[in-house]
Design a protein around this nucleic acid. Structure first.
Lengths: 200, 200
DNA sequence: CCGTGAAAACGGACAACGTTCAGAACAGCG
DNA sequence: CGCTGTTCTGAACGTTGTCCGTTTTCACGG
């Protein structure tokens, strides 16, 4: 038809992303289909494929936004805190909080995988890296004089651990523990780990 | 037709599970369809629905078997070790090893969720619980005189952490760390965490 | 050996999915 | 008005989970 609506390609893209995120939040990863997104923005499926390469492209785009959202949330929750250990605890708690508040977005970020045929997204990997660097910089004061390689490894260890608590919380496999206050676990993990660093 | 083949219902069930696990290992979670399973065992899809309630039922069954396999692997790798801390390290390393050796089975265990309409599987939850208790019992010597609630909480914290490293390893989001030897992370986590417990 | 009824298995149907693409419908220009 | 090129549609294809009417086969009674 040629520009039947008033929306530029860029606008269509934004609308599609917003609609997809709404569907994701409401119905979860599995309920997010290209057809539903197309219906929600008033276009047909075919048009979506002129905006996104395929469904994986759309999902990866949403995942990049989720990573940004987590990063922003971590910054917000930690910037007002001075003491490094308290900051790490706040970062961990914020991570858990995000996962519990946006379980579907969190899950899709880690469960969706690009098919091997598609080339990896550098922008997405950089965002993950940036998030880990936030931990790394806050961990540095606890390991004075440690070489960068050691610092990176320890940050990855600690943050992998925090991620595990969030992942289990969101997967529903943590029910047996009976405790729904998952910040307790992250608090204990960060505190005990830090104590171990200080002792070692 | 009435028993055209020689296979009892129980046998068909076993065949279907074995076939499904093979497909899962070869093609991943997303490539596992009811039709492929039916083809693989020489029956039609309809017949599969007389054996399993639906696809979720089949997947949950496989997940219970995966949990058993992890449990067995953890036992094998830890039973010959006397020292409690070394045992914990071995348990963590075994967990990581299983995740890396069977990424698709590991992922499905934590990524598949029963639809809310289906009643939760007590047998599956008990298996997860049993796995955590293995950690708990090996953690006890490090926390002499700790009340059971504290012990459970600490075991959950530590094992959540180990799980996070395995989950990140398997999700492919850990590439930035550059290190493919994930046991280093679990070793550091367990050792530092234990040092923190001893210090506190 | 044949007939019958119940159990077992098939196979086609349905809706929804991702993806593609020929052609229709429009905007702007001359 | 008519032409041109972009934009968009709508139908199609193959695959998925799930259901159910139909057919086939077996075990048993006569």
């Amino acid at each position: 038809m040629g520009r039947r609506n008033q929306h530029s390609r860029e606008q269509q893209r934004d609308m599609a992303i917003a609609a997809a995120e709404l569907i994701l939040v409401r119905e979860g990863f599995g309920g997010l289909s290209m057809r539903k997104v197309a219906d929600a923005i008033g276009y047909t499926v075919g048009q979506l494929y002129l905006i996104f390469q395929n469904q994986d492209d759309l999902l990866a785009t949403i995942n990049e936004r989720t990573t940004d959202a987590i990063y922003g949330h971590l910054r917000d929750r930690s910037e007002a805190i001075d003491e490094p250990l308290a900051r790490l605890r706040a970062l961990a708690a914020a991570y858990i909080e995000f996962a519990q508040r946006h379980p579907h977005r969190f899950r899709m970020l880690f469960e969706h995988q690009l098919p091997p045929a598609m080339e990896p997204r550098v922008s997405g990997e950089l965002r993950i890296k940036r998030m880990f660097e936030l931990v790394e910089s806050n961990l540095a004061p606890l390991l004075p004089g440690a070489p960068p390689a050691r610092l990176r490894q320890t940050a990855a260890t600690l943050w992998g651990g925090v991620h595990g608590i969030a992942a289990l919380a969101v997967s529903g496999k943590f029910k047996w523990a009976g405790n729904r206050d998952f910040e307790r676990y992250s608090d204990e993990l960060v505190s005990t780990f830090a104590a171990g660093l200080a002792a070692g």
